[in-house]
Amino acid sequence: MVDEIVEHNEQFFADEANKRQLDNLRRILPVLLEKGVDNLNLTMFDPATKVKLLETLGDEYYRKGQTDLAIKVYVLAGSREKLQKLGKYYDGVGQVTQAINCYRLASDENSLLSLGHKCLENGHIKDAMSAFVLVNDVDALNKVGEDCLVKERWEIAIEIFKASGNTTRLAELGKRCVETREYDIAFQAFEAAADKDGLSALGDVCLADGKFELAQRAYRTAGNDTMLQFLAENFGKKV
């Protein structure tokens, strides 16, 4: 979104009249802040003046600690540098989710990648995943997924491998969880991998183990109409 705006505002070549106008607008910042950015009509200004005015408003929101509004205004202004600055601020104070959002809005893939690796080193798996998903770094995502497998954080691993499209590891995790009788997790893994054979096999195991409802879910997700009919006709009262 910022990329589309910033292409039209790379340089500021305001004439003297526009500069004087901007100086005057700075003097009425309190009134503009009170009115709120959503209620301002700035269509009468040329693009460059509008950008500088919005940046000035954003700076004032930031100074007052109203960072959500500052971000909103910087996005409207197409101010990538301001968003990057906010991202660094949030990163510095440990508010990683907000930092990721600022870098996302600024289309700053380098900072997202760097922050993702930092989160991974610090054990912040979900934040690392969020950053790597935004830059579509499949290798990094798979690395995070492998780390989750080592730590037996199955559900997060499933989410990560699904995001990276690693159906092989999802199917392997599903089989592993069947062996350890963690059937609900196995179902999630096979479903994420769209592994119909794995789902049908899980249904068979659940049926043999008397877990009829989960067996039905597995067969239904696998599209195994034969076993669904078998369940309905022979164990209909238990599902």
Rank of each mutant, 00 (worst) to 15 (best):
1 M>G: 11
5 I>Y: 09
5 I>E: 03
10 E>W: 12
10 E>L: 14
11 Q>P: 02
12 F>C: 14
16 E>H: 13
18 N>F: 10
18 N>I: 01
18 N>W: 12
22 L>A: 04
28 I>N: 08
29 L>S: 04
32 L>A: 07
33 L>H: 03
34 E>P: 03
52 K>H: 11
53 L>N: 01
58 G>I: 02
60 E>Q: 10
60 E>F: 01
61 Y>W: 01
62 Y>Q: 13
63 R>L: 05
63 R>P: 02
64 K>L: 06
64 K>Y: 06
66 Q>H: 08
72 K>Q: 12
73 V>Q: 08
73 V>E: 00
73 V>Y: 09
75 V>W: 06
76 L>W: 01
79 S>Y: 04
80 R>E: 11
80 R>I: 04
82 K>P: 01
83 L>Q: 06
85 K>Q: 13
86 L>V: 09
86 L>D: 02
88 K>M: 11
89 Y>K: 09
91 D>M: 12
91 D>Q: 15
94 G>E: 11
95 Q>I: 10
98 Q>S: 13
99 A>G: 03
102 C>S: 06
102 C>L: 08
103 Y>P: 05
105 L>V: 02
106 A>P: 08
108 D>R: 08
108 D>Y: 03
109 E>N: 14
118 K>N: 04
119 C>L: 07
120 L>H: 14
123 G>K: 10
123 G>N: 01
130 S>F: 11
133 V>K: 13
140 A>T: 04
144 V>F: 02
145 G>L: 06
145 G>Y: 01
151 K>E: 12
153 R>A: 02
154 W>G: 06
156 I>L: 15
157 A>N: 05
164 S>H: 02
167 T>L: 05
171 A>R: 12
172 E>W: 04
173 L>E: 02
174 G>Q: 06
178 V>R: 12
180 T>F: 06
181 R>E: 15
186 A>Q: 11
191 E>W: 02
194 A>K: 01
197 D>L: 01
201 A>Q: 15
204 D>R: 12
207 L>H: 09
208 A>Q: 15
209 D>S: 13
210 G>D: 09
212 F>I: 10
217 R>N: 09
220 R>W: 07
222 A>W: 08
228 L>I: 09
231 L>N: 07
232 A>Q: 15
234 N>M: 05
238 K>F: 14
238 K>H: 14
239 V>A: 03
